[in-house]
Design a protein around this nucleic acid. Structure first.
Lengths: 188, 188
DNA sequence: CAAATAATGTACCGATCGGTATACTATCGC
DNA sequence: GCGATAGTATACCGATCGGTACATTATTTG
C-alpha cells in the first residue's frame, strides 16, 4: 500500500473511532508510518484530507443510491432499492459509515459539518426527486417531499446505527419492514 | 447570573454550536467574561464541566421519562407519554438537545461519549423495563425488549433532530403518528 | 473583629495543535 | 546524462491546548 492510501486508511479508522476534531495530524502520520510533510503533500490540509475521504466514499454511495432511486411507478419497491443501496454500502464500509453517522448529527458550525454538508444535500436531493416523481401519481404526497425525504433518511440512518452496534441486522426482512413501516406512516 | 451559571450557559451554547472537542476552555471563559481558574474552581476540568452540564439536564429528563414510562397495560398510550416527555424536554431545552443528539452518534472512544454513555444507558434501561412489563401481556414481544428500545429511542431522536432543523413539529399529531407507526412495525 | 474559606485574577506550564521552510532523494521524460 | 517533478524527512513556526502555582479579594463563620 502506498503512502497516500495508508494515510487515508488510518485517518478513516481514527476519525471513525474518536472523531475528526479529537484526532491530530501527528497521530495520523505516526499511524501511517510517515511524516507530516507527506500528508500535506497529498492533501494540503487536515480539512483537505477529510474532503478526500468523503469524496472517495460519497461518490460511489451517491452513484449507487441514484440508480436505486430511479422511480418506476412502484414506490415501496423503489424505497426498498434505496434502503438496500444504503445498507449495502454501510455493511461493506463500516468505518466510513460510522464516521458519516457521527457527521450526520455533528453541529452545523463545526468544520466537519461544513465538509459533509454538500454530500448530504446531494443525496437528499436524489431522494427528494424520487418523491417528487412519486407525488405525480399519489396526489396526497404533494408538497411533502422534503419531510418525507428527511424522515426516510433518518429512518435509514437509525437502522444502520443500530446495526453498527449489533442491535439488528441489515437484511432483507428489515428492509421490507422498514419500508412497510414508512409507507404506513405516510398513508395513515 | 452568577459566574457558575454563566459558565454553564455559555459552554452549553458553544458545545451545541460547534461540538465539545472544537471548543476550547479559553473560549468558554472569554464568553462568560471570567478567567480560567474560576472555571477550574467550579468544575475541576473541561470534562467535569461537561459532566455537570449533562447531569443538570439528564436528571430532570430522566425523571420525566421515568414517570411517563410507568406501564399501565396500554402500550401505545405509554409510548405516547414517553415520546411526549422527550419532545417536551427537547422543545424547552433546544441547545441541550442539539448537544445530546450530537453526542448520541459520537464515536464511542471519544471523551464526550464516555461522559454521556451512563446517562444513555440509564434512560435506555427505563424504556427497556417498560417493554419488559408490556411483554408480560404481549407474549410475542418477549426477548425483543432491547431492539425495541433502541428502535423506539432512535425514532424519537430522529424526529427531534428533524424538528430542531425545522423539518417537522413536535406536536400531538406527530406523537400519535410516530407511536402508531412504531406499533405497526412491531405487530406486522 | 479574626480566622477560615470561597471566589477570582495574573502569569505561567509543558504538550499539542495545524502547518511549513528547506533540503535531499527518487523517478521520469527527453 | 540531465532537467524537472514528485515524494519524503529534519527541524522548526506561532498559536492554542488543558491545566495550575500563587497571590489577592470577598464572604462567611466563630
Amino acid at each position: 500500500m502506498d503512502n497516500r492510501a495508508a494515510i487515508l486508511a488510518h485517518a478513516l479508522r481514527l476519525f471513525a473511532a474518536r472523531g475528526y476534531d479529537a484526532v491530530g495530524v501527528q497521530e495520523i502520520v505516526e499511524a501511517a508510518g510517515i511524516t507530516k510533510p507527506t500528508l500535506y503533500h497529498y492533501f494540503g490540509s487536515k480539512r483537505g484530507l477529510l474532503d478526500t475521504l468523503l469524496e472517495g466514499h460519497f461518490t460511489p454511495l451517491h452513484q449507487s443510491v441514484k440508480q436505486a432511486a430511479a422511480y418506476n411507478g412502484d414506490l415501496p419497491f423503489t424505497l426498498e432499492k434505496v434502503a438496500r443501496a444504503y445498507f449495502d454500502y454501510a455493511k461493506t464500509h463500516r468505518a466510513f459509515y460510522r464516521m458519516q453517522l457521527a457527521l450526520w448529527y455533528t453541529p452545523q458550525q463545526s468544520e466537519a459539518y461544513q465538509a459533509v454538508a454538500p454530500w448530504n444535500e446531494k443525496l437528499h436531493q436524489v431522494i427528494e426527486e424520487m418523491f417528487t416523481h412519486a407525488a405525480e401519481q399519489h396526489g396526497n404526497m404533494r408538497n411533502r417531499q422534503r419531510p418525507y425525504t428527511a424522515t426516510f433518511l433518518g429512518m435509514v440512518n437509525t437502522y444502520i446505527g443500530l446495526a453498527l452496534n449489533d442491535y439488528t441486522e441489515l437484511d432483507d426482512p428489515l428492509i421490507y419492514q422498514a419500508v412497510h413501516q414508512f409507507m404506513h406512516g405516510i398513508f395513515s
